[in-house]
């Protein structure tokens, strides 16, 4: 396709330049994580230095990394799995048995996302106190699940709609009820879309900070909470801050990079025909 060699060269240079600029802050943080505090403040900034792992050791003394990481994993996977389990039947009905109200229900679901979390924080907090669920993974999983649910329904709906209704109709003729159609026809046919939805959910849950900071503490706090405890540096300790940041971001970054292809394939939100 590219006849023009010059266009290719320009593309390559521009593509890499922008990639470098966008990734630079992450790269710079990664370097700082392995510097000593002295090196982190050096001017001119150091590109070459003797790397140290000390910052990670100190971070782990201050916050229990493994516990927070484990909470992050459980909350992300739990809320994603349950979210899809709850959303899929609804999306199935909306895609294949729509009524006049389907559209309004969908818009209403999305409109719940416009409820600013901070506006309902106090009642949520009090409710968690009443239910004795403060600082539990159950609470965080439920909240994350609910705040992602409208998106999940919408995404699944858009993938389900691409599945030809004839296939489901054939299944129905063979006596498959809605749940069987869902399990044996729709899920296999819409796998790329479902995995894309799951990936987006996992990423959003991993990075969810607001609820995590406000309703969890040492027991169920995720990495987002761990990093927040570093957010008000009394005195300067950038290297430790960077180490903690890197440790919280690296798992999801690597996960995102590895699954990038699956993520991208499905991010259509039904907007592309």
């Amino acid at each position: 396709m590219v006849k023009n060699k010059r266009a290719l060269v320009i593309r390559t240079v521009l593509g890499w330049l922008i990639a470098f600029i966008m990734a630079f802050p992450v790269f710079w943080m990664t370097l700082a994580a392995f510097k000593t505090e002295m090196d982190a403040y050096a001017s001119p900034p150091l590109l070459v230095f003797t790397p140290t792992l000390e910052n990670f050791a100190e971070m782990n003394q201050r916050v229990d990394y493994v516990r927070h990481a484990w909470n992050s994993v459980l909350v992300a996977l739990g809320s994603t799995f349950l979210g899809i389990l709850i959303a899929a039947p609804a999306a199935y009905v909306m895609a294949f048995h729509p009524t006049k109200r389907t559209r309004s229900i969908m818009l209403w679901m999305l409109s719940t996302k416009f409820m600013p979390a901070v506006g309902v924080l106090v009642p949520m907090y009090l409710m968690l106190v009443w239910l004795d669920l403060l600082d539990t993974r159950t609470a965080l999983i439920t909240i994350t699940l609910l705040s992602n649910l409208p998106l999940v329904v919408w995404m699944l709906y858009s993938y389900f709609k691409e599945v030809p209704a004839e296939i489901l109709e054939a299944g129905r003729m063979d006596g498959a009820g809605p749940l069987k159609q869902l399990r044996y026809l729709l899920v296999p046919l819409a796998t790329p879309g479902i995995s894309s939805t799951a990936l987006l959910c996992i990423i959003l849950s991993w990075n969810e900070s607001f609820w995590c900071i406000n309703v969890t503490a040492v027991d169920s706090g995720t990495l987002a909470l761990a990093i927040a405890s570093f957010s008000n540096p009394e005195g300067y300790f950038w290297a430790k801050l960077s180490a903690a940041s890197l440790a919280s971001v690296a798992p999801i970054l690597i996960f995102g990079w590895v699954t990038q292809r699956q993520l991208v394939r499905g991010l259509t939100f039904g907007a592309v025909k």
Binding site: A19, A23, A228, S231, L253
Partner: peptide, 13 residues
């Protein structure tokens, strides 16, 4: 991959 990296970084970080 480099361009999409910021999307995976949590807001606080």
């Amino acid at each position: 991959l480099l361009v999409i990296a910021p999307f995976f970084v949590m807001p606080t970080v």
